[in-house]
Amino acid sequence: MDTENVDLQRRLEAIDRKLDLVIERQRFVEDLIAEMTPVVREVIKSGSSQLASMEERGWFRFGGELLAALDQVVATTSPEDVRELATHIGPLVSTLRRVSDPEILDLANEATDIVTHADEVRPVGMMGMVRAGTEADVQRGMGVALEVLRHLGRHHASAPRTPAPPAPPAAPPAPTAAPKATPAPAPAVKLSPQPAPSLETVTWEGRAFTAEGFLLDPSTWDEDLARKMADGVGIALTDDHWQVIRWIRADYASTGASPNVRRVASGSGVGTKRMYELFPKTPGKTAAMLSGVPKPVGCV
């Protein structure tokens, strides 16, 4: 019985100690809260005021817009585009680094300064330009500008001609070709579509012809072909036609060039007048075409 009492007594004491500890902690927490409350309040106050000022300065609107813009970009950008971009990122970064070079930035600053003070600059006419051409600074600038132009031209000439691709990713200039300074106004290089000599060929009767109808390889000609071509252009071949055609073939074989009308007229013996009767409208062209030789050059 005694031992039981002693045991109970000990347990109670232990509980009491624990309770003390709990109470102690509780008090500590209360102290902490009491102490922290003003601090936290202060933090919240300053935090919300900061948020308000951010709002005031448009951070959230900016963020929202940025997200919208990003969304737009993601929606319109295909994985291929991204891959394409990735392959260009190296040169792009090197270009950026070059552009952010303090010297270049200084130059850009100066240029913008000049632009903002443009109304203080007097207008310059043709003579003024010529006069300015004698100033050393202008001359140096022109030298740099010309160098930039030269590089642009060289780059343009060496760039592969792709006839109007849907979205040409502007190839960054090769690092070595990048000029040191870029104060020159970018010249408006107009890419006029050049009427290149027509290289397209047309196949007819198993032979290749130029777009104008001249046989590409004169050795593939035969009289049957001439007859079919004549049919096509509305000419019924007579002995006189054959006389001309055979003479042209022979002349081409010996000279390697298509004879002009005058040469054909006198050489074949039919005369100019008859040439215009035999091959109306365009005697030189038509006779050469039916003879299977290239289009004659020259204007007589």
Partner: peptide, 14 residues
């Protein structure tokens, strides 16, 4: 197939 050239009118015709 007829000869496909000069079948159309001579552009200098008029």
């Amino acid at each position: 197939m007829p000869f496909p050239f000069q079948a159309e009118k001579n552009p200098q015709e008029n």
